[in-house]
């Protein structure tokens, strides 16, 4: 059962809790297939998103999830709020709590902000991405998608290609996949590899060809284009040559390997269009599954005894 009313990261979850969320999500996936895609359990609850970084897809996904659970959803717009007038993040969060919200979906460029807020708030805090720390609902929807295709996680080989050092998606997936018994490979240039990552139980590759060989799942990550100017990479072209997921490279993976991407994609930088749109791609399914998974998270956290 879920122990905490907050979802701060996958780090804090047990394998059992992860499976419980995924099982619940399949119930919601069924709901989403119906004509009436709405159920009533969070009637009267309100969900507020507080995003200090721009995001369209995650915010929209949470909004739909909340609404399909019959909760009210309000976006606290940071750019028009007092945050830019110098209000502290704690004051902003406490203000939202005083408005009577039950859930706060928070995204911030600084790692640890959801933890900071969870220490001062009564309401449930859900991490929608903090710095280079975690993006737990993304990893959960990725697991859900993998399970839908592979029927298991244990024993699979999952190759994650990209800017591991700055990727909270990679981190959450590494925790989730290793907790459930998958073999995880991380593939990226040494400049983008976080310190001592191998201690998390992953295999480190600098060669994409070697890293994707015989894997069951290939996950490519978005490359923030400003990495080039910071000296992590000589050029985006060279990055694509070395780490871009092309049809040729994908052939090295298992024949039935699936291709995933958390979006938004840079076509021609980390992934070739032919792969993104190809038969092995499950990228749009990930987006669909995101709603069911976020419904499950909201629903289960609402059921945790306060």
């Amino acid at each position: 059962m879920i122990k905490s009313k907050h979802l701060l990261g996958i780090k804090e979850l047990s394998a059992k809790e992860i499976y419980h969320i995924l099982d619940t999500a399949s119930g919601f996936k069924d709901v989403l297939k119906r004509d009436i895609k709405k159920v009533p359990p969070l009637r009267g609850k309100s969900v507020v998103s507080l995003f200090f970084e721009p995001s369209t897809r995650t915010k929209t996904s949470f909004a739909l999830a909340a609404k399909r659970l019959s909760a009210d959803f309000v976006n606290f717009s940071v750019s028009t709020s007092s945050v830019i007038k110098g209000e502290t993040i704690q004051d902003t969060a406490l203000t939202i709590q005083s408005l009577g919200a039950d859930f706060m979906i928070v995204r911030h460029a600084s790692s640890g902000v959801p933890h900071l807020l969870s220490n001062i708030l009564e309401m449930s805090v859900i991490n929608a991405g903090d710095g280079a720390n975690e993006h737990p609902t993304q990893a959960l929807l990725d697991l859900f998608t993998i399970l839908a295709h592979k029927k298991r996680i244990e024993g699979l080989t999952v190759s994650i290609i990209g800017d591991i050092a700055h990727s909270r998606v990679a981190k959450s997936n590494i925790y989730a996949l290793t907790k459930l018994g998958a073999n995880v490979r991380v593939i990226c240039p040494p400049t983008l590899m976080p310190a001592e990552i191998e201690k998390l139980g992953v295999d480190v590759f600098h060669s994409t060809d070697k890293g994707v060989k015989n894997c069951d799942v290939v996950m490519t990550l978005r490359l923030q284009l400003e990495r080039q100017s910071k000296g992590f990479l000589p050029s985006l072209e060279e990055y694509f040559n070395l780490y871009g997921l092309t049809s040729e490279r994908l052939k090295l993976a298992k024949d039935d390997a699936i291709v995933m991407h958390p979006g938004p994609m840079n076509r021609g930088v980390e992934i070739e269009s032919a792969v993104a749109d190809g038969p092995q791609s499950v990228i749009l399914e990930q987006v669909t599954n995101g709603i069911a998974v976020r419904m499950a998270v909201l629903y289960l956290l609402a059921g945790v005894k306060k």
């Binding site: 640890g112 720390n133 975690e134």
Partner: peptide, 13 residues
């Protein structure tokens, strides 16, 4: 400090 812990918490080392 840059190291395993900075990797875990996602803070720049």
């Amino acid at each position: 400090n840059e190291g395993f812990v900075s990797t875990i918490v996602g803070l720049q080392g």
